[in-house]
Amino acid sequence: MGILLQLIFTGLGVGSIYALVALGFVLIYRATNVVNFAQGDFAMVGAFAMVVMTIDFGLPYWLGILLTLIVLPVFGAAFNLGVYFPLRNRSYLPVIISTLGASIFLENGMLAAYGPRPQSLPPIFASQGITLGPVFLDSQYLAILATTVVMVALQYVFFERTLLGKKMQATSQDKEMASLLGIKVALMIMITFIYSATLGGLAGILIAPIIFVSVGMGSAIALKAFAASIIGGFGDVKGAIVGGLALGVIETLGAAYVSVPFKDGFAFLVLFVFLLLRPQGLYGERISEKA
C-alpha cells in the first residue's frame, strides 16, 4: 500500500511537469491554431537564464527569478516576431516547420554556448521533502503541483472573466471576425506568445532541480506533454492538466508493475488508444461542432 501511494505521488509530480508544459502548447494552439514545437525549449531557455543569473553572476535566488521574469517575456516577443509573425498569413504547415526550426536553432545555440554538460540549479526549498508514513513527498514536486494549480486558476479567471482574456479567446476562435470587431489580432497573439514563453520558462526553472539543466531537457518533456494535451483534448486547458497528470501516473505505475524498459511506451500506447477510440480527447469538442 505504501509503495502504491509513493508511486501515485511521484506519478502526479511527474504528471504536473507534463501538465505545465502542455498548458503552453494549448495557449499558443488556441491563439494561432498552430502547434509550437519549440514549447519544450522555452523551459530550457528559462532554466538556462536562471543558471546565468544565479550561478554565472552569483545573484540571489529571488533576484534571479525576478530578472528571468523580465528576460522571458522579451524572449517570447522576439520568438513571435521572428518565428510566427512573418508567416502569419500562410497556412499552419509553414508555421509548424518554422517552430521546429526554432527548436533546433535554440538547442544547438545553447549547445555551442554552454556545451553538453548538464548543470544543476538549487531547489526552491532548503528541505528535500517530508516523509509521511511510508511515502516520501519531494518538496520540489509539491512546489510544481502547487504552481500548476495556481496557474490553472489564474488562467481560468483570465480567459473567462477579463475583457483581455475574452478578446484573446475571440482571436483564437475566428481571427477575421475578431479583427472586424476591432480587436487587434496581432497584439493578442503577441501577448499569447509572451505569456506562453513566461509560463514555459517558469516550468523549466521548477523542473530543473529534478531533471537538471541541459540542452535537451525540454524536448524530452515536450513530447510527453504533447501526448498529454492530445489525450486531454487539444486546445483545452482542463484537458491538458488532466491528461498530464494521468500520463504521469500511468507511466509510473506501468513502470513499477509491468515493465521499466517500456516506461516511455506507456504514454504513447495511451495516446494511440485515444486516437483510435476518442480522437477528440477527454474534453475536446467534436470536429463537427467546431465547424
Binding site: 509513493q6 508511486l7 509530480g13 529534478i210 535537451g216 524530452a220 513502470a255 513499477a256 521499466v260 516506461k263
Partner: peptide
C-alpha cells in the same frame, strides 16, 4: 532491471532495489 535513458523519474526502479 533496465531503465530507459532521459527519464525525469526513476522511482519505480529505486523502489524495486529497496524491495
Amino acid at each position: 532491471e533496465g531503465q530507459p535513458n532521459n527519464s525525469p523519474d526513476y522511482t519505480a526502479v529505486a523502489l524495486k532495489v529497496k524491495q
